Amino acid sequence: MKHYEVEILDAKTREKLCFLDKVEPHATIAEIKNLFTKTHPQWYPARQSLRLDPKGKSLKDEDVLQKLPVGTTATLYFRDLGAQISWVTVFLTEYAGPLFIYLLFYFRVPFIYGHKYDFTSSRHTVVHLACICHSFHYIKRLLETLFVHRFSHGTMPLRNIFKNCTYYWGFAAWMAYYINHPLYTPPTYGAQQVKLALAIFVICQLGNFSIHMALRDLRPAGSKTRKIPYPTKNPFTWLFLLVSCPNYTYEVGSWIGFAIMTQCLPVALFSLVGFTQMTIWAKGKHRSYLKEFRDYPPLRMPIIPFLL
């Protein structure tokens, strides 16, 4: 059985960083990364991007050496992705923050609204209902991160945790300040508006959870398998008939419901920014589905049925 020789060059300087002799033909890129780490321990596998061309796409960890368009002496180019952190850690951090930050404003801890309001309670029912909904949303997200989601990528750049936390924590503080303010004004149409908004919120939260469970069942634990998601017997998953990412559709719907319930401008802005970002993600995933699966359902749109 022939063996391969693998040289790894710096993608920027073309400097030879490592030479691997007698590499098995069936070795994966993940195994080559581990061998590279032995000579350069500062670059652990998650930091490494190996590619066939200095400006090309990163090879997948599961790619097999003998199936790549290389000879028995293969040249790979290395790029440092920077310090990495696990997706689970990032999600837990960015979701735990809003949960606790919101509660600080809800309980009106000292130095927020003035001494005479310390630890007082709002007289408006919608304020307490909003706290329950907000807390439920982020507790749900935390539990899904721990027990439901299966991540195709193990890590992301460390800098992302600061960007994500600034976004989630900042908006949580902004909306919580106004919703729990002693001078907060309840919704214009009173109980009817709150009940309608609560119904929207609850339905969308159930829908979002149902989609996450359906997506989880598509991917076996520990794998990166991708399949076309289809509706199940659960009615909340029937939205798969019309959109590629109904989890985002339901998520946006939840925040629209919360915005109607609280009639709070920061919540509306958070919903708008979230919708914009999720639309970008949904379009990317939709394109990926179309590219990977020739039999992908043609009627589906990325996030909004028939429109977007």
Results as ranks from 00 to 15, higher is better:
K2W: 05
K2T: 06
H3R: 12
H3C: 02
E5Y: 12
E5G: 09
E5V: 11
E5K: 11
V6P: 05
V6S: 06
I8M: 10
I8A: 00
L9S: 11
L9K: 02
L9M: 04
L9P: 05
D10Y: 04
D10N: 12
A11V: 09
A11L: 05
A11D: 03
K12W: 13
T13E: 00
T13N: 09
T13C: 14
E15M: 13
E15A: 05
E15Q: 07
E15R: 04
K16L: 06
K16S: 07
L17Q: 13
L17I: 09
C18A: 08
F19R: 12
F19K: 12
L20S: 12
K22Y: 10
K22A: 12
K22V: 13
K22T: 08
K22N: 11
V23D: 03
P25A: 01
P25Q: 13
H26F: 02
A27D: 07
A27V: 10
T28Q: 15
T28M: 03
T28A: 10
I29N: 04
I29T: 10
A30V: 10
A30S: 08
E31N: 13
E31H: 10
I32F: 04
I32A: 04
K33C: 07
N34M: 05
N34K: 07
K38Y: 14
K38Q: 14
H40R: 10
H40L: 09
H40K: 03
P41R: 01
W43H: 01
W43E: 14
W43S: 06
W43G: 11
Y44I: 01
Y44H: 09
Y44Q: 05
P45W: 01
P45V: 00
A46W: 01
R47H: 09
Q48E: 13
L50H: 07
R51F: 03
R51H: 10
R51N: 02
R51W: 04
P54N: 07
P54H: 00
P54T: 02
P54F: 03
K55N: 09
G56A: 07
G56V: 04
K57E: 10
K57G: 08
S58P: 12
S58M: 08
S58F: 07
K60D: 01
K60A: 14
K60C: 12
D63G: 12
L68N: 01
L68Q: 01
L68F: 15
P69L: 08
P69F: 14
G71I: 00
G71F: 10
A74G: 14
T75L: 02
T75F: 01
T75D: 14
L76T: 15
L76V: 04
Y77R: 01
Y77C: 08
Y77H: 09
F78W: 03
F78K: 06
F78V: 11
F78T: 07
G82W: 10
Q84P: 11
Q84G: 06
I85L: 13
I85S: 07
I85V: 12
S86I: 08
W87K: 00
W87Q: 15
V88E: 10
T89M: 10
V90S: 12
F91I: 13
L92F: 01
T93I: 07
E94P: 14
A96E: 00
G97A: 08
P98V: 12
P98G: 07
P98F: 03
L99A: 13
F100C: 14
I101S: 07
Y102F: 07
Y102N: 00
Y102R: 01
Y102W: 00
L103V: 08
L103K: 03
L104Q: 05
F105L: 08
F105W: 00
F105T: 13
F107V: 07
R108A: 00
P110R: 12
F111T: 00
F111N: 10
H115M: 08
Y117H: 11
F119L: 11
F119E: 03
F119H: 05
T120K: 06
T120M: 11
T120R: 07
T120Q: 13
R123Y: 13
R123A: 11
H124F: 15
T125N: 14
T125V: 05
V126A: 08
V127N: 06
V127R: 06
V127D: 05
H128S: 13
H128C: 04
L129H: 07
C131F: 08
I132G: 07
C133L: 13
C133S: 11
H134M: 02
F136L: 11
H137Q: 10
R141G: 01
L142Q: 13
L143Q: 11
T145R: 02
T145P: 02
L146H: 14
L146W: 13
H149W: 00
H149C: 01
H149N: 03
R150W: 06
F151V: 07
H153C: 06
P157A: 12
L158S: 08
R159M: 00
R159Y: 15
N160S: 12
N160H: 14
N160Y: 13
N160D: 09
I161V: 11
K163T: 07
C165G: 12
T166N: 05
Y167S: 03
Y167H: 09
Y167F: 08
W169Y: 03
F171I: 13
F171Y: 09
A172E: 02
A173K: 12
W174D: 02
W174C: 08
W174N: 04
M175I: 07
A176F: 06
A176V: 02
A176K: 00
Y177E: 03
Y177C: 10
Y178P: 14
N180K: 03
N180F: 02
H181C: 14
H181A: 15
Y184R: 15
T185P: 08
P186E: 15
P186T: 00
T188V: 15
Y189A: 01
Y189P: 13
A191M: 14
Q192M: 14
Q192R: 10
Q193N: 08
Q193I: 00
Q193H: 12
V194A: 10
L196M: 07
A197S: 08
L198R: 07
L198T: 15
L198P: 09
I200C: 07
I200G: 15
I200T: 08
V202L: 09
I203A: 15
C204I: 00
C204W: 04
Q205L: 08
Q205Y: 15
L206H: 05
L206I: 06
N208R: 01
S210G: 04
I211D: 15
I211N: 05
I211P: 04
L215S: 15
D217V: 05
L218H: 05
L218M: 03
G222W: 09
G222C: 02
S223C: 01
R226L: 10
K227W: 15
K227S: 00
P229M: 04
Y230N: 12
Y230M: 07
P231R: 03
T232P: 10
T232L: 15
N234R: 01
N234I: 11
P235A: 04
F236S: 07
L239F: 08
L239G: 14
L239P: 11
L241V: 12
L242I: 04
V243A: 10
S244A: 10
C245L: 03
N247S: 10
Y250R: 02
Y250C: 06
Y250Q: 15
Y250N: 11
E251R: 15
V252E: 07
V252A: 11
G253V: 07
G253M: 15
S254D: 01
S254W: 06
S254T: 08
G257E: 15
G257T: 14
F258N: 14
F258A: 14
I260T: 11
M261K: 00
T262K: 07
Q263Y: 13
Q263E: 09
C264V: 00
L265Y: 13
L265F: 07
L265V: 13
A268D: 04
L269R: 04
F270T: 05
L272F: 13
L272M: 05
L272R: 03
L272H: 12
V273Y: 09
G274C: 08
F275L: 09
T276A: 11
T276K: 13
M278G: 10
T279V: 01
T279R: 14
I280T: 11
I280N: 12
I280F: 12
G284A: 12
G284R: 10
G284F: 03
K285D: 13
H286Q: 06
R287Q: 14
R287F: 01
L290P: 06
L290M: 08
L290H: 00
K291G: 00
K291N: 11
K291T: 08
F293Y: 08
F293S: 11
R294S: 09
R294V: 07
D295N: 08
D295I: 06
Y296P: 00
Y296D: 03
Y296K: 00
P297T: 01
P298N: 06
L299W: 05
M301V: 09
P302Y: 00
P302I: 08
I303T: 06
I303C: 10
I304G: 00
I304R: 01
L307A: 07
